[in-house]
């Protein structure tokens, strides 16, 4: 049948859900092996953090879309967690191959890494559904409140930390569709062009540090 914008958006949702049907919202056996190989086992922190962010996400989702939608928020969050664990496993496999390392204790005990990865996974889920809402309800649909960078505020994340995850996320998840990769690319641009330069941004601290220890590249001379 003729592919209308709504049908295309519904297809994206079905594709996303289809990709995740066989993925659990708990860490897989392979992930548990990576966790056990860590100097400090991160399993408990990871599952506890997912539970905490699940509650925050559902509450914020209901505030943004409507109180009767808290259950819907939970469903969205579960899809995000499934994608989060799927991509984490894929990232660790490629890092293991690249670095010939099996102990990822520092990375897997880094709360910012986990929160940024979960935020990126949720952004993929939210953008998939918002894409449908926009085409189905127009800009009046309350779900448009969930557009990027809504998720950064929900998790109180520095934009620059999510920026660091996006490229590796795209590399680690080959089933991402072209329009979703484009969307994540636009998120990167939005971060780099504006959000990352807000006064409380992490970027200023990093620039200051790189200037102090001289690791920063020399600024290019102004064009004549």
């Amino acid at each position: 049948p003729q592919q209308t914008p709504i049908r295309a958006a519904m297809y994206s949702i079905q594709q996303l859900r289809g990709e995740l049907t066989s993925i659990s919202d708990q860490p897989s056996g392979i992930l548990m092996v990576y966790f056990k190989n860590c100097t400090v086992d991160p399993s408990e922190d990871i599952t506890k953090r997912v539970d905490q962010f699940g509650q925050i996400f559902s509450q914020k989702f209901a505030q943004a879309v409507g109180q009767r939608c808290e259950g819907l928020g939970k469903k969205r969050f579960t899809l995000g967690v499934q994608l989060y664990y799927k991509v984490m496993e894929s990232m660790l496999k490629s890092e293991e191959k690249r670095l010939s390392v099996q102990n990822f204790s520092k990375l897997l005990n880094n709360a910012t890494f986990h929160t940024s990865l979960l935020a990126c996974a949720l952004e993929v889920v939210l953008a998939t559904y918002v894409g449908y809402s926009l085409k189905n309800g127009g800009s009046e649909s309350p779900e448009t409140n969930l557009c990027f960078p809504w998720i950064l505020d929900v998790f109180q994340l520095h934009a620059f930390d999510v920026y660091k995850v996006i490229e590796s996320f795209i590399k680690a998840e080959p089933t991402l569709k072209h329009d979703m990769i484009e969307h994540l690319g636009r998120c990167e641009q939005q971060i780099m062009e504006s959000i990352a330069w807000k006064s409380d941004s992490l970027l200023f601290e990093l620039l200051r540090q790189s200037r102090e220890d001289g690791t920063g590249e020399q600024a290019e001379p102004p064009a004549t």
Binding site: F104, K106, S168, I170, H178, E182
Partner: peptide
């Protein structure tokens, strides 16, 4: 995917980006 501009070097990955290499 040719529209997305990959910028990481071969020797860079998520471990380096989060200072966990």
């Amino acid at each position: 995917t040719q529209d997305y501009h990959f910028g990481l070097e071969d020797h860079e990955g998520i471990s380096e980006l989060f200072d966990c290499d």
